[in-house]
């Protein structure tokens, strides 16, 4: 079953893989970060260990506060031996990951299809 929260769409794929598609074109306000965190945390707690793919294909702009959110989420996910994959990151945003070397920290795939390989 697919669900919607204000800032993302959730798809369950193959039974136990969750694909969260971020729907805001720009993620920069603290309220957006808090809303995303409030949506992700219960998902991670209720699906333990989670297999989570975060799809950025609709995101055109973000700031370093989103990187902070991803790191907080990844710590929670890795603590419980879950899997986190990112996909669909636009080239200009990928540059932010490269500059901060977070492209070495996160598993990043070009497409949602490739991110799902080996998970379902």
């Amino acid at each position: 079953m697919d669900q919607k929260s204000p800032n993302m769409t959730i798809d369950y794929v193959g039974g136990d893989v969750i694909v969260a598609t971020l729907v805001d074109e720009k993620i920069l306000e603290e309220s957006q970060i808090q809303a995303l965190e409030s949506s992700f945390l219960p998902l991670i707690e209720e699906n333990n260990p989670i297999k989570l793919v975060v799809d950025f294909s609709q995101v055109r702009f973000l700031t370093s506060s989103v990187l902070g959110l991803l790191i907080r989420l990844s710590k929670k996910i890795y603590e419980s031996e879950g899997i986190l994959r990112l996909c669909g990151i636009q080239p200009k945003i990928y540059e932010i990951f490269k500059i901060t070397r977070l492209d070495k920290v996160f598993d990043i795939y070009p497409t949602r299809q490739e991110a799902l390989e080996g998970l379902v």
């Binding site: 370093s64 902070g68 790191i71 901060t100 070397r101 920290v105």
Partner: peptide, 18 residues
């Protein structure tokens, strides 16, 4: 430096670098 291995998992400190 947020790119150093010991700082990679810190949740903030990347704004000035960007």
């Amino acid at each position: 430096d947020p790119r150093e291995p010991e700082n990679l998992y810190k949740c903030s400190g990347r704004g000035v670098l960007l």
